[in-house]
Design a protein around this nucleic acid. Sequence first.
DNA 1: AAACGATACTTTATCGCTAACGTATTTTGC
DNA 2: GCAAAATACGTTAGCGATAAAGTATCGTTT
Lengths: 342, 342
Amino acid sequence: MAVRLKDIARDLDVSVMTVSKALRGAEDISEKTRQRVLKRMAELNYRPNMLARGLASGRTSIAGLVVPDLLHPFFAEFAKALNGVLRRHQYGLILASSEEDPAIEQEEIRTVLARGIDVLLIASCQTSLKGFYGVEDQRTPFILVDRNFPHLRASFVGTDDYRAGLLATRHLLGTGRTRIAHIAGPELSPGIDRMRGYKAALAERRRGVPRGYLIANARVEEAGESAGYRAMRQLLRRRRRPDAVFCYNDLTAIGAMEAAIEAGLSIPGDVGFVGCGNLLYSRYLRIPLSSIDQSTRQLGEQAGNLALDLIQDRGRAPQQICLEPRLVVRASSVASKQSGGS
Amino acid sequence: MAVRLKDIARDLDVSVMTVSKALRGAEDISEKTRQRVLKRMAELNYRPNMLARGLASGRTSIAGLVVPDLLHPFFAEFAKALNGVLRRHQYGLILASSEEDPAIEQEEIRTVLARGIDVLLIASCQTSLKGFYGVEDQRTPFILVDRNFPHLRASFVGTDDYRAGLLATRHLLGTGRTRIAHIAGPELSPGIDRMRGYKAALAERRRGVPRGYLIANARVEEAGESAGYRAMRQLLRRRRRPDAVFCYNDLTAIGAMEAAIEAGLSIPGDVGFVGCGNLLYSRYLRIPLSSIDQSTRQLGEQAGNLALDLIQDRGRAPQQICLEPRLVVRASSVASKQSGGS
DNA sequence: AAACGATACTTTATCGCTAACGTATTTTGC
DNA sequence: GCAAAATACGTTAGCGATAAAGTATCGTTT
């Protein structure tokens, strides 16, 4: 079996407690004994049993992350950055996916909590706060990621989605488009706020949303491209077809552009597109996609740092971190541009 | 605090052990008592403390996964599928990334092992077996994923990479190409085997590898596209430039195609490309990419099932699961095709 | 009716580690 | 030179669960 404190204690003829203290750098240990202990630990390749430590100390050095979809590049990138921060602080990451299903999400939350995680990060797909009761009355600190609940006084790390919608739509207006449609996301904060931004940008020009130009698509997350494809087909059936579309995210935009190309339209000539998320691959697409960059990596890093802070100081007030979105212009919205941005 | 067995035992005036047995469906409990216990558990929303259970029973219901890069769509897709299988069996997943660094990998392996995982899945970036000593002499069963060590008698789940290279290169030969280059991957089993397949396909036509047509790129994984870009630039400097390139993976191919387009070449007219991995986005690229599909999702599912099997039956002999690769032809290699495959 | 076995629990002893307190031994102050 | 304080270690008592073995209670068998 694995080496235990007990083994080292026996070897050195000291108590288990002395070894434990030396390991964790406690104060009341002589330098000499500590060195003896550490030496022996190195020889035996000792690693503390984290289950036992967690059970005894109440801290596991594990963070839990619950996302709707691991495969979605946004969450993959987020998870990677988060994991990097955690690793550097000797923290582990236990991962769960809700598959965009509120019921699974609740179950997964309970499961990871039962594993004694020190902090929970969650990109929730709950449409109401109801589903959050389980988390709230736990002692475990938690951070909402990407999707916020306006009336929940909780920590949040995400994008200013209202501004994202604003920037995207302003950009399309700025390129002279007049009939701008929006393929909206699910009814969670990002989708709602991006739509609000879209409407606000139109309102700045004293415009409203043209009838039938707002496509709601509750299940857009699950099948980004195909939902985008279907939504675009719907838009193309309008009497006056739009000359630009702001899409909830890049995957949606990919599908929407496919539909446009299939219908024989030229991009960005006949119709311009802007997505959101600025996925790694968006620049390599058939028509490089203009997008709103969310600084996903920074989001992951900030979330990691906040998580560590919350563990350190349980009493700390919830903190809201909202990164500024940034427009990246590529060929899908502006003719002259071959490619651009990062 | 959370509800414990002790609380339920007190409420029902039975011993903790009785409650524990009722919970786990042991035989020597009366139906009546079991129902009483389960009822009370439901009322109190009881969840067993998995740390305590793990410590006492030696089984944590957690699998560990160590990958080189979470962001790489192959591993993201694999992880998603794996996680799906595990979730359905009430297993958790603890995730670690080696960032393609053998030293970090070893550290992460030790870390996850110290957390008492029941099984380890690992896509290793060790170039030699040396780094595997730590895993081998543990009791924890493990599965090699994607990257195999030929002389290690261990379980493996991955692709027949030799055949992948063969299929890709045969396809390019079949479209009448005569000067086929290869941008190779790192010196791990997939890279080595795909290259072997490439050479074998050429040999079938009594051809060798033209001088300078084989670009080795040790660090290709870390920065797929930029490495592919650089490699292609190198190929374009040859006196006779290649008329086709088989790329180690799709990311490499994306970068390589960028370089070709930048050099004013037409794809697939002047030069054809085939990648490997068939990423979700490969069909939406500027020029839809022909690729070798690895059935990544199935890989994840099979790995999950094998992992569960290994936990059930520790003595079981190592099993090697090698899925058949499948060619997906798109516009990057054949002019007429607009798009194809799935 | 004694013996047996099945049934349905309970008791005891860990799992490996840590928090909190306890106790020798040395150092310090005056 | 003696008490108080500091130093360095040890003891005890869990954390919340489970494995293994122990014990009442009962119906059955012969």
